[in-house]
């Protein structure tokens, strides 16, 4: 496969033809903040945290969905980007009800970690305090819509790793919500295999193991990648 050469933050980087800016940066040891990106499944560019500047273009690009191009000059850490990232994070916090101090993911939450890594000291927007509920009908897992950032990681692992197709997104805009099957209680879903991959994939405390208390949810994302790799490389299939 042909390689492309580009410059990221002043560093010369070579990347595979079909690589994204995020891939190229990661390979070069340059860290771009991400939230909806999840190794092992395709990207949707939903969260806008990975925005980068590309020289010569006014608009910003999401690093997780933009392919590298020959001679591209990318900036990942400018004042403008830092400002947008903080804004994006503040909006995420203001949109639903994130109460870290009593959350099952407190201390282990990707959203929370991003907030402090990116210097979000306060939320400048009015909280919208929407009324969202919790679906605790599944016998093993719960979904608290209050904490969902609509990254769709759960949807993607459900469809593309497990292949069950249970999780989906319904509604529009701020009223969008993760649903199960045809918007029925999770516990009534006929497609859910109770594999728990969605719970593993969730970056916040939205999906959780039932019975979890504050700060008890820890997730091992390596497990997902392990499954994907094993499948792609047919690691479990004994070759004759």
């Amino acid at each position: 496969m042909a390689a492309k050469t580009l410059i990221i933050d002043g560093k010369q980087v070579s990347a595979q033809d079909d690589a994204t800016i995020l891939d190229a940066a990661t390979d070069a040891g340059i860290k771009i903040p991400t939230l909806c990106h999840l190794g092992g499944v395709y990207d949707v560019g939903a969260c806008r945290l990975c925005l980068v500047e590309v020289a010569g273009a006014k608009k910003l690009f999401s690093a997780c969905t933009t392919r590298v191009a020959e001679g591209m000059e990318v900036h990942t850490d400018t004042e403008r980007l830092r400002k947008y990232r903080r804004m994006t994070l503040e909006l995420l916090f203001a949109e639903r009800n994130h109460v870290c101090s009593v959350c099952v993911s407190n201390g282990k939450c990707e959203l929370q970690t991003l907030a402090w890594q990116n210097g979000m000291e306060h939320v400048g927007y009015d909280y919208s305090f929407p009324r969202w509920g919790v679906d605790a009908t599944h016998h093993l897992f719960g979904l608290d819509h209050n904490r969902c950032v609509l990254c769709q990681r759960c949807v993607r692992v459900c469809w593309h790793i497990e292949g069950a197709g249970t999780k989906n997104v319904a509604g529009r805009g701020a009223r969008s919500a993760i649903i199960d099957d045809l918007k029925q209680p999770w516990g009534d879903s006929e497609t859910c295999t109770s594999c728990g991959k969605c719970v593993l994939a969730c970056p916040t405390g939205a999906l959780f193991n039932k019975g979890s208390t504050v700060g008890e949810m820890s997730r091992d994302l390596n497990k997902l990648e392990y499954i994907v790799n094993a499948r792609l490389k047919k690691q479990w299939i004994a070759l004759e």
Partner: peptide, 9 residues
């Protein structure tokens, strides 16, 4: 509306 497991905290 909250799960009872969260109530202590």
């Amino acid at each position: 509306g909250r799960p009872f497991s969260e109530m202590p905290a």
